[in-house]
Write a protein that binds this DNA or RNA. Structure first.
Lengths: 234, 234
DNA sequence: TGTCGATTTCTTGTCGACAAATAAAATACA
DNA sequence: TGTATTTTATTTGTCGACAAGAAATCGACA
């Protein structure tokens, strides 16, 4: 365990403890530092962050609310497993959210949204260029999340972000062991999407998003069928 | 304050306290017993349920996670307001979820699902027959929630239930003051939906759900434009 | 040796109390 | 009388401790 506490006064601001634990736990779960099934021990976290169990518990309740951890009553709590059996469920929702968020972005985006989207696309292109698979996953998710934000529908944004998180977990499970690369084609498709969004061409945006999403789903399915060690995550 | 505690030993089962508070708070919020903007006092709830503040706080964290209450850091927490300005956002999501859940129900339903759906429809018809507006709202939501369950996509089920909850709050805001009735037409449309779902006619299910959803949206909009005292809920 | 039951242990859920942060009230000052 | 500043009060966030529940360990008995 690394102790990065160098401050002499270890007093944190009042409400920041839970957010810190929540953010860090969340990142560790999505990055598979805590793989599915990992036990979450409250007292261990408490002494790790040098705080009481109360704020730890609040962070855990939040994570449980988002489905990132599962809590057995009166028993242990652990990182939720990835549901490989109902994968089509995930794909259905992902494709639909890709489409509807891109549609709405074409309808409701403002100039400043395009700036953000283009910045995310630049980061994604850089990650592809550098063949950094992990960065590709993160920047790709950030790109589409930015598009969803431009669509300005909080309900879709919320569901979409959850799906992107889950996808980040699944992809990382495979990319970390194979080091695949997302093809340059995705970069080009992103560029096309930006173009039609800027042109406010709703139908074209929908069509592009559909093709793009199915492309990604195909890519994921290919990874899964090629590799059969699905038993890792229970 | 009514004291319904008649048991001499007021010991509850270990994990049941939070669920009880959560369920009751949730119902009171959705039924507008606690209208938007109502302050939520932890100590008051603590002595009302004769328990410590800790389980109360856990229930509140969960409710905040679902967006039913808003928490100001270090200050008060109150029932979240209904966002009338971005209503179209709600309608967009509602219509889409109506369509996709009905589609999926037509695809994936099993015989036992139809039994449940028909039971919900019977309850809805009875509420319409009795001209009980509040029961109509609840049974209509339960009917469509049952269809979503038959679709077996947890992501859509989760978002749809949230939307139905929010709709329940909005409708109750108006029905409780006007005593309107949902027309018999909705009962007939429900019957048609059951028929096409049972026949596994996906496209017809989608089309019926679309018309039905837009019908409901029109109904809600009519209520809102007819009445201009939107300032009630801030 | 194997099975059932009691005991121990370990984790969670709950409690009462204290401290920090903010709002409200009271006081000082022009 | 109006405004700024200090004081009080109320509410939240955090803590340490205790008790309940369930798995694990141990022991009795056939």
């Amino acid at each position: 365990m690394t102790d990065t506490d160098s401050s002499p006064t270890l007093e944190r601001k009042r409400g920041s403890g839970v957010k810190m634990v929540y953010d860090l736990l969340r990142d560790e779960i999505l990055d598979l530092v805590l793989p599915p099934g990992s036990p979450i021990d409250e007292v261990q976290l408490a002494e790790r962050f040098k705080m009481s169990r109360t704020p730890i518990r609040e962070a855990l309740v939040r994570l449980a609310g988002e489905g990132l951890i599962d809590t057995l009553p009166n028993r242990s709590t652990m990182v939720s497993s990835i549901d490989f059996l109902n994968m089509h469920t995930f794909f259905d929702a992902l494709v639909l959210m890709y489409r509807v968020t891109t549609r709405l972005a074409a309808q409701h985006h403002r100039p400043e949204d395009l700036q953000i989207i283009r910045a995310r696309q630049a980061e994604f292109a850089a990650a592809v260029q550098a063949q950094d698979a992990l960065a590709m996953i993160a920047t790709n998710a950030a790109f589409h999340s930015a598009i969803a934000e431009a669509g300005r529908n909080t309900y879709f944004i919320g569901l979409f972000n959850r799906l992107l998180d889950e996808g980040r977990r699944m992809l990382r499970l495979y990319y970390q062991s194979y080091g695949d690369q997302l093809p340059q084609r995705f970069v080009d498709e992103h560029e096309d999407m930006i173009t039609v969004i800027a042109a406010r061409d709703v139908e074209a945006a929908d069509q592009l998003a559909k093709v793009h999403a199915e492309q990604i789903v195909t890519q994921i399915k290919r990874l899964f069928t090629r590799d059969e060690r699905l038993d890792i995550a229970l």
